[in-house]
Amino acid sequence: MRIKIATEVQAELDQVKSRFNEDLFLSLNPPFPPVKLVQFGGCKTGDVVELELNFILFKQKWISKIVEDYESKYQWYFIDMGTKLPFFLKSWKHVHDVRKVTEGTMIVDDITFSTGTLLTDMLMFPLLYFQFLYRKPVYKKWFKE
Score class of each variant (00 low, 15 high):
residue 124 M to A: 14
residue 137 P to C: 06
residue 130 F to Q: 08
residue 126 P to F: 03
residue 123 L to M: 13
residue 111 I to W: 15
residue 132 F to L: 03
residue 139 Y to Q: 01
residue 114 S to V: 08
residue 118 L to E: 11
residue 124 M to D: 04
residue 121 D to R: 04
residue 129 Y to N: 08
residue 134 Y to M: 07
residue 127 L to R: 06
residue 111 I to P: 13
residue 122 M to D: 04
residue 137 P to W: 05
residue 117 T to M: 09
residue 117 T to E: 10
residue 140 K to Q: 14
residue 130 F to Y: 09
residue 127 L to P: 03
residue 129 Y to V: 03
residue 118 L to T: 13
residue 118 L to I: 11
residue 117 T to G: 06
residue 114 S to T: 09
residue 128 L to S: 10
residue 119 L to E: 14
residue 136 K to I: 04
residue 109 D to G: 12
residue 126 P to G: 06
residue 136 K to G: 00
residue 110 D to I: 08
residue 112 T to A: 11
residue 128 L to P: 04
residue 119 L to G: 11
residue 109 D to V: 12
residue 132 F to D: 02
residue 109 D to N: 13
residue 124 M to T: 14
residue 140 K to T: 01
residue 125 F to C: 06
residue 111 I to K: 15
residue 111 I to F: 14
residue 140 K to L: 06
residue 109 D to L: 14
residue 141 K to Y: 01
residue 138 V to Q: 00
residue 133 L to E: 15
residue 136 K to R: 12
residue 136 K to H: 03
residue 110 D to Q: 13
residue 128 L to F: 12
residue 137 P to R: 02
residue 136 K to L: 00
residue 110 D to E: 15
residue 125 F to K: 09
residue 132 F to C: 13
residue 130 F to A: 04
residue 123 L to T: 09
residue 142 W to A: 00
residue 128 L to C: 04
residue 122 M to I: 02
residue 115 T to M: 07
residue 127 L to M: 06
residue 130 F to P: 03
residue 120 T to H: 11
residue 117 T to S: 14
residue 142 W to R: 00
residue 111 I to C: 08
residue 113 F to H: 09
residue 117 T to N: 13
residue 139 Y to H: 07
residue 129 Y to A: 03
residue 131 Q to P: 06
residue 118 L to K: 10
residue 125 F to Y: 14
residue 112 T to P: 07
residue 112 T to G: 11
residue 131 Q to K: 07
residue 133 L to A: 13
residue 132 F to T: 02
residue 121 D to M: 03
residue 127 L to F: 11
residue 112 T to N: 14
residue 116 G to I: 09
